[in-house]
Design a binder for these strands. Structure first.
Lengths: 139, 139
DNA sequence: CGTGAGTATCCTGTAGCGGGAAGGTCAAGG
DNA sequence: CCTTGACCTTCCCGCTACAGGATACTCACG
């Protein structure tokens, strides 16, 4: 009745590639209706859920986190504490990644600084990689 | 003749899982010799290359970057400029990731702060995810 | 009636391994 | 001599979050 749109229009409306939307349906994130010709049909609520998911993904939430957030989003009676807990856990992951990358950056920046970068073979970067301890964490 | 060791000893010496070492051989990063019984045999130079790779990976270099760095490592006549260029490019990638994550962190931290986190259903996090613009970049 | 755009499904590939199956090898113990 | 158990081997599937492409349909338009 209202604004029921095709997958390409849903893609345009949400900024998600059509492939991604099909994938989201395949893994059960969203459940678009089907027209008689088997074409997917997206109503306003599906479009909102897609946009919701797109935004959560842009904030770095994993698909499974998005699934949980979507469930809470659909459940009008949920406690905000549940949402906050997911967000806080994800925030902690982000902080961990930032710390990890910052440590890497520090080491690597120092190596880049101390390397002459000319046509001589002497290179402190390779020397450090060859001798150094396994060093800080990973991304 | 010298210290030629098995894969499990190589793993212990480098901190890499044996599976990972086999994988590195499979993709042609390293070329361990074989004993008569088809067992892999690692000499000192292979061990150094494995440790080198482990350290580079810990600094966030991709496998292909490691391949390039290994080639430069083996080439005693290389120019340090080549190494520096790889390292600098990787440093730029790290900086981009940090910037990306920091932007996410900012948005998410704000949302977490403004959420009551109690048993009431009212949640600004979900509200923002539902309404917001696609927002900052991705990891 | 054809044509081009849009849609459908299915299959493959990506990075960097981890887990586990099925089987060979080797030294020590009974 | 035989067996156990710790190694080692190869092979194949799984993961994340899709992208790319092949093949086939459906539909509106001229």
């Amino acid at each position: 009745m209202t604004e029921h749109v095709s997958i390409s229009e849903a893609a345009r409306a949400t900024g998600l590639p059509a492939k991604t939307i099909r994938y989201y349906e395949e893994i059960g994130l969203i459940r678009p209706a089907r027209a008689e010709n088997r074409y997917r049909v997206f109503g306003p609520s599906q479009l909102h859920e897609l946009a919701f998911t797109a935004r959560a993904r842009a904030l770095g939430f994993s698909i499974e986190e998005c699934r949980a957030l979507l469930a809470l989003y659909r459940d009008k009676g949920r406690a905000s504490a549940e949402v906050k807990e997911i967000a806080r856990a994800h925030l902690a992951q982000i902080d961990a990644k930032i710390a990890d990358l910052t440590a890497m950056r520090q080491t690597l920046a120092h190596l880049v600084e101390t390397c002459a970068g000319d046509d001589r073979p002497d290179c402190p970067i390779l020397a450090d990689l060859a001798r150094g301890e396994p060093s800080p964490g990973r991304p």
